[in-house]
């Protein structure tokens, strides 16, 4: 299983970033907690609009199963849902902490966006 966590940095000890579409990095890890890939999200950080939609597309293209982040807006939510990606919102702490919370099944998946669109 591939788990994506929005992050301020490139490794598991980095602080996670609560933003989805405009997080500087998205860390992809296995369910065992191994680092698989780091997506440099700079293109979307500077996007005028549609950052969440494009970030969702990059996760879908990589076959990600679960996204763990802070906020998820309506457009990103629609796109992630279409790709069958489960979404855990309102996460805090380091990437590692978010992953272990997920492993301990302490995360419930969202059934709706938790913030307004940013436009």
């Amino acid at each position: 299983m591939k788990i994506a966590i929005t992050s301020t940095g490139k490794n598991l000890d980095s602080l996670m970033d609560p933003r989805f579409g405009r997080a500087p990095y998205i860390v992809i890890a296995s369910s065992d907690g191994d680092l698989l890939e780091v997506i440099d999200n700079a293109v979307n950080v500077n996007a005028m609009r549609g950052a969440g939609i494009q970030a969702a597309k990059s996760l879908a293209d990589r076959g990600v199963d679960v996204l763990l982040t802070g906020h998820c807006g309506p457009n990103a939510f629609t796109a992630l849902q279409a790709a069958g990606i489960k979404i855990g919102t309102d996460q805090t702490g380091s990437v590692k902490e978010v992953l272990s919370r997920f492993k301990d099944q302490g995360i419930s998946f969202a059934d709706k966006p938790n913030v307004e669109a940013h436009w």
Partner: peptide, 22 residues
Amino acid sequence: GEVCNFSAILTIGKTVLTFPEL
């Protein structure tokens, strides 16, 4: 989706999504 500069259309999963307001 590749040609759209505004993410108003997107192929994702097994579907194509449109975001008319974009």
